Amino acid sequence: MPDTRSERPTALAVWLIVGGAIGWWAAFSLTMERFALLADPEAIATCDFSLLVQCTANLESAQGSIFGFPNPIIGLAGWVAPIVVGFALLAGARFARWFWWCFWAGTAFAFGFVLWLIGQSVFALGTLCPWCMVTWAVTIPTFYAVTVHALRISGVGWARRLAPWVPLMAILTYAVVAVIAQVQLNWLAQF
């Protein structure tokens, strides 16, 4: 069996940096919106475009602070990990299999949390939060990419053939979310 760990995963590293930076920026923007709403409860968030596309309803809901503090704080802390791992990979770092599975567990939690938040946003709150959707958009492919890499680094032969399909897996997931949102919220009527 070839040592797949000797190959530097440059594309994954670049994605982790870019996706992590985008996710961190979305979390930062949501955190700033939350601060503004806390400072002035009558304020209107800059990401409130309509009753359907807005941040305020999501930020002020119970789902917006499910662990007792605003969810964007999770993103501020969490998105640092992919950025650091990406830069470490570009610098030539090699991580053990256990590290990749621990890193995968973090991305799996993020993916599951995002799926739950999508469900809450669409079915319970009836809104689409723009900054939340940015977070969803980077969490989904990050999860798929890290999953494929963790399988590959563990010696699963077919994982290498699955890697080129990561973008399509993400696009299909986006499509499912868009269809569910359209059926439930009729979001295309906003345009």
Rank of each mutant, 00 (worst) to 15 (best):
P2E: 12
D3A: 04
T4M: 12
R5V: 07
S6W: 02
E7A: 14
R8H: 05
P9K: 06
A11R: 13
L16N: 02
I17Y: 07
I17W: 07
G19D: 03
G20S: 09
W25F: 14
F28Q: 10
T31N: 11
T31Q: 09
L38S: 13
L38M: 15
D40N: 14
D40S: 10
P41S: 11
E42D: 15
A43V: 01
S50D: 09
S50A: 11
L52P: 07
L59W: 00
E60N: 12
A62M: 12
G64D: 03
I66W: 12
I66H: 05
F69Y: 15
F69G: 01
P72Y: 00
P72Q: 04
P72E: 00
G75L: 04
A77C: 11
G78I: 04
W79D: 03
W79I: 00
I83M: 13
A88Y: 03
L89D: 00
L90T: 05
A91V: 04
G92W: 06
F95V: 03
W100L: 03
W101N: 04
F109E: 00
F109A: 11
A110L: 08
F111N: 00
G112K: 10
V114T: 14
L117P: 00
Q120R: 11
S121K: 03
V122T: 14
V122E: 05
T127K: 08
T127Y: 06
L128E: 02
A137R: 06
V138C: 06
I140N: 00
P141C: 09
Y144D: 03
A145D: 02
A145V: 01
V146R: 12
V148D: 04
V148M: 13
H149Q: 14
A150N: 11
L151R: 13
R152H: 12
G155A: 03
G157N: 14
W158S: 15
W158P: 13
A159L: 07
A159F: 05
R161Q: 14
L162G: 10
L168P: 03
M169Q: 08
L172T: 00
Y174I: 02
V176P: 06
A181N: 06
Q184S: 15
N186T: 04
W187F: 10
A189N: 12
Q190A: 14
